[in-house]
């Protein structure tokens, strides 16, 4: 579904990604883990088009994504739930979700999407008229995910959904993401610093360090890998 080949990105001469290659198959749950500053967010931004690659290819469902305008990419079925949630603070919860459904795919099915989102996160239903800026961090994250799936995407990209959340809230978020993948058949690309949780639910994982993929493999192989166990799982 998504194929990235030898992608490099640099910011003013500093290279953030170096020849990164990655594949996401339809229906897969891919986790991308690694320390701060490894380039995970940059990779997401390159897929969404808010940073331009220096070289390399990004193909999505067989078409070249780099030549598509950033605002077109949501219309192709890609939903990006950005780092730090980035909900629209002066819009209500409901308006945020409507904006999530801005891309053509979600527009017709807004009612059904809302039902699904409110079933997933009942808290949002109670607060639908509240301004998103007044929600707690956990609620904002739920809203950001809800907004992401409101477009009925085929590929859901989540950037650090657990960032800054209490462990119980983070667990709930991880559970819901796993549910979306398992029951909804959604293709998920997840970036996380909480490596254990991320690797638990994925089919396949990539480890990114200082702009390079240093390790990749199916879940079991990664969980069993000595380097991963020592560096990320504290074992």
């Amino acid at each position: 579904m998504l194929e990235i080949e030898r992608l490099s990105v640099s910011y003013g001469g500093l290279s953030a990604l170096r020849e990164v290659s990655l594949r996401v198959g339809a229906g897969e749950f891919i986790a991308l883990v690694g320390p701060n500053g490894a380039g995970k967010t940059t990779l997401f931004k390159a897929i969404s088009g808010t940073v331009a690659p220096a070289s390399g290819r990004i193909r999505y469902e067989g078409r070249d994504l780099v030549s598509a305008a950033p605002s077109e990419r949501a219309h192709l079925g890609i939903a990006h739930v950005p780092e730090g949630r980035q909900v629209f603070p002066s819009l209500t919860v409901l308006e945020n979700l409507e904006m999530g459904a801005y891309a053509a795919a979600g527009r017709g099915g807004l009612e059904r999407s809302l039902e699904r989102i409110f079933a997933l996160f009942p808290m949002l239903a109670d607060r639908r008229r509240q301004l998103a800026g007044t929600l707690s961090g956990g609620e904002q994250q739920m809203l950001a995910i809800g907004r992401g799936i409101a477009s009925l995407p085929r590929l859901l990209m989540l950037d650090e959904p657990s960032m800054g959340l209490a462990p119980t809230v983070a667990d709930l978020i991880f559970e819901r993401i796993a549910e979306l993948h398992r029951d909804g058949g959604l293709t998920v690309l997840l970036v996380e610093q909480r490596v254990a949780e991320a690797l638990q639910s994925c089919d396949k994982g990539y480890v990114l360090e200082t702009g390079r993929i240093v390790l990749e493999g199916p879940r079991q192989a990664l969980l069993a890998d000595d380097r991963v166990r020592r560096a990320y799982l504290g074992m």
Binding site: S48, T50, S71, Q86, L91, E95, E98, M99
Partner: peptide, 22 residues
């Protein structure tokens, strides 16, 4: 819808792009 999109773009133009708002 367009009015809400304008407000969304005002709030956070990057997130608005991710919603497919030009």
């Amino acid at each position: 819808r367009l009015g809400k999109a304008l407000r969304a773009a005002a709030d956070n133009s990057e997130a608005a792009l991710y919603m497919g708002i030009d």
